[in-house]
Design a binder for these strands. Structure first.
Length: 632
RNA sequence: GGCUGCGUAGUUCAAUGGAUAGAAUGGAAGUUUCCUAAACUUUAGAUCUAGGUUCGAUUCCUAGCGCGGCUACCA
């Protein structure tokens, strides 16, 4: 029995019995009582005043009285202040809660038979993972784990973007400038090696763009331009002659011209050729593609392994990019889509406040959204889920909105279960990360840095001098990753957040190591008294000190917290909860002796409280994918 | 321009329409014969502006200001 649910139900019955008033459960506002008032939980009465035509004081008095007599002793007192009914819960209830809940898995909900798929990570094979991917990975993993703890069967999936023009860019650069370099020959991690070739391509492209752009500005004829594009360039150039244009407009026109120039460079022509050959299954191109992708995957695996992330199923776009076309036919037949004169296929979403959206090009090839429809269907066929969660940045809100709308209109059975877990960008204190300015924070570098800081701080404190090198390494990893994950998960996913490198390596206050430290302290106490399954004395106390009670009250809320974080798909609720629990425990620990308590009764009680606090901290951190050390 | 998200202590984050807006960090002042001071205690410090709805608004509505994102026959 959760006390919050119980009190709401009891209040509901009271209102019904006293006034014949049928209140919906969510009409009853239940809060924790503010510390300055007497009581544990508070019911807000204002919302009933109008319908019941009574003063809030009177409703409070009568409802309180009713609840007191009908609570089987669970409520021991009440008071009414203004429109607030403060209820005191029996000390026995809290002590019984402690007696009945000592499972290591306290908080975990039984299986509910429902399936949830979580897609996250979604890397490109032309770049190593960066800070943005880390937020994505941690969120995806944690949300999946939260669903698992709420009784869902989960499947974690990853969609790898392993094809397309951008992938060919690194391949071409490797061919031209690589001299046969491999991860082995260069000693470089595969994803970084490939990423460097991508950068090299972009550099070369920039160099080649300059003369082409000059030629365009001069109006020189370029045989690499189609007539259509050449005409557009001419038009742009003429508009630029207008001296009355605003600077902003000039920059915009110049950018357009630059884009034309980029596309007209020899190297871009080469890379388009390469993509064409890839699509025609050219043996040599496929060989390079497979080889370089395998380097990248080895690199990714290393990083995923390090951050403790993995997937049940990985979908490769090279396998799925042709999917979805059949649904275009289906959509046309159902009248969901319509065909334009040039043969392209569209959906009209103006009635939903959006515009017309292309689903099939005039040449009959599919676009991104078409593939996504196909992939969504494929996922559902392989794992008929009740909910399908896409962990994707909020810059794709529009795209995901369209995807869900189309699936709904096509009558796809999974359409209503699609949920875009839209998270905000990670910014630096200086602003947005920009690859062109080299401000992108690399995932591997960041992990190195976090572990290094963990090592330095641990050495400074000198508490684990007896650890073996292996144990030390594991501890640095636990602490470094704990700090990083907690830092990224403690913020509401929907919100854009700032990554401050200096703040992220702080191990004090609202951080992972703070919570980990509390856990280590608890384990230390339990070790000292040899607290084992076999020798735990039964609780005999029947009174609680304020801090003892505060801890139990907080612990009792853990299952409800798990539910809430699941409903909202929000791990930050758990991070906040774990931190607050740890904080309360630290006060308790400072204030009261556990192993050397005043009486044997108090000692036993406090040991039970400490043990369950430890379990909950471990479990809360577990769903955040953070490990806890026995010592630190 | 259209659509959309966000504006809370110096800074980074909280707050299902509910009591005096919470934390952390930084600032100031303290706590170590005793279970791990990566801790604890005390203290100063904030709701972008103007209206509206309500018994009650950081929260809902309208307008304005400021900052993002999206608005490709790219993925």
């Amino acid at each position: 029995m959760q006390i919050g649910v119980y009190l709401k139900e009891l209040a509901q019955k009271a209102l019904q019995d006293l006034y014949g008033f049928e209140a919906m459960p969510d009409q009853i506002t239940l809060n924790e009582t503010k510390p300055e008032f007497e009581g544990d939980y508070t019911i807000v009465l204002f919302q009933f005043v109008k319908q019941l035509r009574k003063s809030p004081e009177e409703i409070g008095r009568q409802t309180g009285e009713w609840m007191l007599t009908n609570s089987d002793g669970n409520i021991t007192a009440f008071n009414v202040i203004k429109g607030f009914l403060n209820l005191s819960v029996a000390e026995d209830f809290w002590i019984n809660f402690l007696k009945q809940n000592n499972s290591e898995h306290f908080g975990k909900w039984p299986a509910n038979g429902k399936k949830v798929m979580v897609e996250y990570s979604s890397p490109n094979t032309n770049k190593p993972l960066h800070l943005g991917h880390l937020r994505n990975n941690f969120l995806g993993w944690s949300v999946a784990e939260i669903f698992a703890w709420n009784g869902f069967e989960i499947r974690k999936t990853c969609v790898v973007n392993d094809r397309g023009i951008h992938i060919c860019k690194s391949m071409l650069a490797w061919q031209k400038f690589g001299n046969g370099a491999t991860p082995e020959s260069s000693g470089q991690k595969g994803d970084h090696l490939v990423g460097d070739f991508y950068v090299q391509f972009e550099n070369e492209l920039r160099l080649q763009t300059v003369p082409v752009l000059d030629a365009l500005m001069n109006g020189d004829a370029l045989n690499s331009l189609s007539d259509e594009v050449a005409a557009k360039a001419t038009a742009l150039r003429e508009r630029l002659n207008d001296t009355s244009l605003a600077d902003e407009k000039v920059a915009e026109l110049k950018d357009e011209l630059k884009e034309i120039a980029r596309n007209a460079t020899p190297i871009m022509q080469e890379v388009r050729q390469m993509l064409l050959r890839w699509e025609q299954h050219d043996e040599e191109v496929l060989r390079i593609w497979k080889m370089m992708n395998s380097w990248v995957y080895a690199g990714f695996d290393e990083t995923y392994n390090r951050i403790g992330s993995n997937f049940d199923t990985t979908y490769y776009e090279s396998d799925t990019y042709l999917l979805g076309k059949e649904y275009v036919e289906e959509g046309l037949a159902k009248g969901v889509f319509f065909k334009k004169e040039d043969g392209s296929v569209w959906i009209d979403l103006t009635a939903d406040g959006l515009d017309e959206k292309l689903v099939l090009r005039k040449d009959g090839t599919s676009v991104y959204i078409t593939q996504d429809i196909g992939l969504a269907k494929k996922k559902y066929q392989e794992f008929p889920m009740d909910q399908s969660i896409y962990v994707i940045g909020d810059e794709q809100n529009y795209h995901m909105h369209v995807l869900q709308l189309i699936c709904k209109k096509l009558g796809m059975p999974f359409a209503d279960g699609i949920h875009h877990l839209s998270y905000g960008m990670v910014d630096l204190p200086t602003g947005r990360m920009k690859s062109r300015e080299g401000t992108v924070v690399d995932a591997d570098d960041l992990c190195d840095e976090m572990e290094k800081v963990a090592a330095t701080k641990t050495e400074e404190l000198g508490k684990v001098k007896d650890f073996t090198p292996d144990e030390l390494q594991r501890l640095y990893h636990t602490l470094g990753m704990g700090a990083l994950k907690f830092y990224l998960l403690r913020v509401d996913p929907k919100k854009r957040m700032v990554f401050n490198p200096e703040e992220s390596i702080d191990f004090h206050g609202f951080t992972g190591p703070f919570v980990q430290y509390t856990y280590a302290r608890i384990q230390s106490v339990l070790r000292k008294v040899n607290w084992q399954q076999a020798n735990k004395p039964v609780i005999a106390s029947n009174t609680l000190l304020p801090l003892e009670k505060a801890l139990i009250v907080q612990m009792e809320q853990f299952p409800a917290m798990l539910q809430a974080s699941c409903a909202e798909m929000n791990p930050s609720l758990i991070a906040n909860y774990a931190f607050n629990l740890a904080k309360t425990f630290n006060s308790f620990y400072t204030e009261h002796s556990i192993a050397n308590a005043e009486t044997e009764e108090a000692k036993v009680l406090r040991l039970h409280i400490s043990e369950l606090t430890g379990h909950i901290i471990r479990n809360a951190m577990h769903v955040l994918a953070i490990q806890v050390p026995e010592r630190m």
